[in-house]
Design a protein around this nucleic acid. Structure first.
Length: 557
RNA sequence: UGGGCCGUAGCCAAGCGGUUAAGGCACCGGGUUUUGAUCCCGGCAUGCGUAGGUUCGAAUCCUACCGGCCCAGCCA
């Protein structure tokens, strides 16, 4: 390494093998020094966090190399696609924080694609096959045995052209003919055994309507769309490695003006999560979740409603890296990214999820004392707010124990605890109901402990509280991982692997009044991060979703 | 007649023949703290799937083995 290298202000951003390849291309002067990428979803479902990895990669590379990235809808199969998904995908990409240079659709190129197909026929590199789908499958051979040529493989150029034109004109029904590339029926790579490039589909297309009765296949469309858009690096996941020879064959055979290079990377596998559109669809359809944007779903819509900040997802994608390993990523890494982001941004508030009454008996009934709270302990610029302190408070049921475990720092009968931002109180007595359940804690307070340490003793515990008279009622939904097994598989029985505790509803939460407004995540002190939900509860109450808990080293031991 | 990939700590991952194998997460200690949070400090691979080989020198090159993933849609 030379000294200049360290002072060089080349592209910034994460280090990975794809960026090394791009650096090498640039060093060789390829692509006139340009780096153009694309994110190419099929509009047949919602984007999930696995797509976020691809989005961050494609847009991130373009940004760091001062190139651009297109958003391209791969809409070549009208039977699976819906306009609803186009809007949802655009919204998700924007929400993640990226801007596409151009918005494109594979269907924009249907005319060019058709013309290219005619060229393929004319050069003897494609033919119309009139076998059935079953026959074609039969003749394709197996993983270990070569295929056999179709009886239609030697049709004349004229006949092929005529048939293909009539396919386009709608003279035939679905399945009667297909156009196949004429490559090598004996190839070890099955994708090269005369792949189908056009099929008849008499279906309305979301953008082209009834204009076409034939539609091009993915392998044929993708490389040409890349070439047409001048994409330099076509990044996709590992399962397309075997398709690269076909990608290259089509571009070489057609001798396109440019030849983008496909580079494959490992998909995201996240612990306690399953990311296949088919599987996510099942969760929705069978009612295991509340819809595509259920806060437990790994869809971007779900993560958004859950309150995950887009910056945290971007950070996560940077941290996991890009390699050719199909690696299971530890959920803790995502969680850390969420907490790091929220810790800096989220204002602190007081809220009690499972309330029990705490009465300060040595205070008058009408006592009301406004206390000043910092909105953020490390960020003074977030300012302060007033919180009313009164005789009757709500505190967390969990913060009192009749029989405390070892190292307990919270309230016990006869013990003292600090009320967050307020006084030290001592629990003098309990009130129980007929079943022996504690329903009230009667305390006295040390008037000399507001803003100071108590004299002559140490009080370690701090608990949060809300003035009973001022509290706002709310429903709080506690979300946890959807699966109870770290590496769920699509073969698993859902009843075995779904986490029955993935949603726990706290119907009777008491919130500090300042939480009545706002729609961004806040921290409920000592509990975690929470975000207002778009809806209300069955009883018309405000709803908060738990984004994530605070780190809790106490609970772990 | 099979083809294509991948193995560096519990997880992710840098490394590209030349000092004691980056970094993050997790975990374990300790300090600060009116959130058991945050923050700070420290610890954490004599080792790179295994075995040989090449070399003055190998995680990096070669060979063989072992383990894992993907492919037989008129899906993408």
């Amino acid at each position: 390494m030379s000294a200049e290298d360290t002072s060089d202000d080349g592209p910034t951003g994460p280090v990975n093998f794809i960026r090394h390849r791009i650096d090498a291309d640039l060093a060789e002067g390829k692509n006139e020094g340009q780096v153009y990428t694309r994110f190419p979803p099929e509009p047949n479902g919602y984007l999930h966090i696995g797509h976020a990895k691809s989005i961050c990669l494609n847009f991130g590379v373009a940004r760091d190399y001062k190139g651009h990235c297109n958003l391209r809808f791969d809409d070549t199969n009208p039977v699976k696609e819906d306009a609803e998904f186009i809007d949802a995908i655009k919204k998700d990409v924007s929400w993640l924080g990226f801007e596409w240079a151009q918005l494109r659709h594979a269907s924009d190129y249907f005319d060019q694609l058709y013309a290219y197909a005619c060229e393929l026929i004319k050069s003897g590199n494609a033919y119309v096959d009139s076998c059935s789908a079953d026959e074609i499958r039969e003749m394709r051979g197996t993983l270990k045995a070569p295929g056999t040529p179709s009886p239609y493989r030697e049709r004349s150029v004229e006949e092929n052209l005529d048939l293909f034109e009539r396919m386009k004109a709608g003279e035939f029904n679905d399945g009667e003919h297909v156009l196949r590339a004429r490559i090598d029926m004996a190839s070890g790579n099955i994708n090269l055994r005369d792949p189908v490039v056009y099929r008849i589909r008499k279906v309305n297309h979301i953008r082209t309507g009834d204009t076409w009765s034939i539609y091009p296949m993915y392998d044929y469309t993708h490389c040409l769309s890349d070439a047409i858009e001048g994409i330099t690096h076509s990044l996709c996941t590992l399962e397309f490695e075997d398709h690269r020879p076909l990608y290259d064959w089509i571009l070489d055979t057609l001798n396109t003006p440019v030849h983008p290079q496909q580079i494959e990377f490992g998909p995201l596998l996240l612990e306690y999560t399953l990311l296949s559109k088919r599987y996510l669809l099942r969760l929705v359809q069978e009612g295991h979740v509340d819809g595509w944007d259920d806060p437990r779903m790994p869809t971007l819509a779900g993560l958004r409603r859950r309150g995950f900040p887009p910056a945290a997802i971007r950070r996560f994608c940077d941290l996991i890296g890009v390699t050719k390993n199909a690696a299971w990523t530890d959920m803790a890494l995502l969680e850390t990214c969420i907490r790091d982001e929220l810790n800096v941004a989220a204002p602190r508030r007081l809220a009690v999820l499972d309330p029990i009454k705490l009465i300060i008996t040595d205070l008058p009934e009408d006592h009301e004392e406004p206390l000043t709270f910092q909105n953020h302990p490390q960020d003074e610029s977030q300012g302060t707010r007033q919180v009313p302190f009164t005789r009757e408070l709500w505190v967390e049921r969990d913060d009192f124990a009749e029989v405390p475990p070892p190292k307990w720092q919270r309230l016990v009968e006869g013990g003292e605890v600090r009320l967050r931002g307020s006084y030290v109180v001592k629990c003098e007595s309990l009130v129980k109901d007929a079943d022996g359940k504690v329903i009230e804690l009667h305390c006295t307070h040390d008037a000399n402990t507001l803003g100071k340490k108590p004299e002559g003793r140490k009080v370690k515990g701090v608990i949060h509280w809300v003035s009973a008279r001022h509290a706002m009622n709310a429903e709080v939904r506690l979300y946890d991982r959807l699966y109870k097994t770290p590496n769920p598989s699509p073969e698993d029985d859902l009843d075995d692997v779904l986490n029955p505790q993935s949603l726990v509803v706290m119907p009777n939460a008491k919130l500090e009044a300042s939480l009545a407004t706002g729609n961004t995540p806040v921290q409920f002190e000592r509990l975690g991060y929470f975000v207002p939900d778009s809806g209300t509860s069955a009883t018309g109450q405000v709803v908060f979703n738990r984004v994530i808990t605070l780190r809790d080293t106490w609970a772990k031991s």
